[in-house]
Design a protein around this nucleic acid. Sequence first.
DNA 1: GCTTGACCTGGAGTGCGCTCCGGGTCGGAG
DNA 2: CTCCGACCCGGAGCGCACTCCAGGTCAAGC
Lengths: 118, 118
Amino acid sequence: MTAYAPAEASERTGLSLDTLRYYERLGLFGPVQRNSSGQRVYTDHDVAWVGLLVCLRRAGLGITDLQRFMGRLRDRSNGNADVVELLESNRDRLRAEIAKMTVALDVLDDKIAHYRNN
Amino acid sequence: MTAYAPAEASERTGLSLDTLRYYERLGLFGPVQRNSSGQRVYTDHDVAWVGLLVCLRRAGLGITDLQRFMGRLRDRSNGNADVVELLESNRDRLRAEIAKMTVALDVLDDKIAHYRNN
DNA sequence: GCTTGACCTGGAGTGCGCTCCGGGTCGGAG
DNA sequence: CTCCGACCCGGAGCGCACTCCAGGTCAAGC
């Protein structure tokens, strides 16, 4: 359980200090522990979790989607089925998104070839 | 040179009527031809061009980047070198983005496996 | 000739996701 | 003791990319 100062957590997650606090305020993770003088101390669990959040954002989820996701994790009356389902549907969305971007990449390649020799 | 009514252009590009007009206003394409009563008539050239714009947006360019891109296309004092360079750098950016999303996909897969059997 | 529906305009409004701000606390260096 | 830099807070502000709106025109169908 390594501990990270805010600045290091920011560096490791790629999010700004403000954004980390913002996510925490919204309940997307944490609450983060504090040291004696009230400053946050992020654990590597926190950092890893934020990493997942970043992935989900990249998959196209909005902030409120993430909140819903956290809600499902907290209310496990159905076991993990709901969580798994939600993750899977977003994996599919991410796959679709990657596919679209790959098409865009091909288009760019075409355009580059076009402008290069005309 | 097939012609498309606004609704069809919208459907083909995946952009709303408002967004099509918005892009045109900003000079990202067009100006689009009009019929006798002032309504827009999109050509397939327009539609294809908007398709490229969508690809560039997907590659992470903002609207002002697209305007810059159009500027370079109009001012060809350097031949196409500038345009090609710009397209290439954005292709690289798109590649990097796809790579990140692929990592996110792997993370999601891991998480799914994790929640499925615990 | 009336209605309907698609489209027109310029400008205002919206939602999202941060990002910044002012004022404050704390611990360590000089 | 003073300064500095990192961090704290709640709340305001911002930039982007649309999106909506009011009020209007037009063509076609009944």
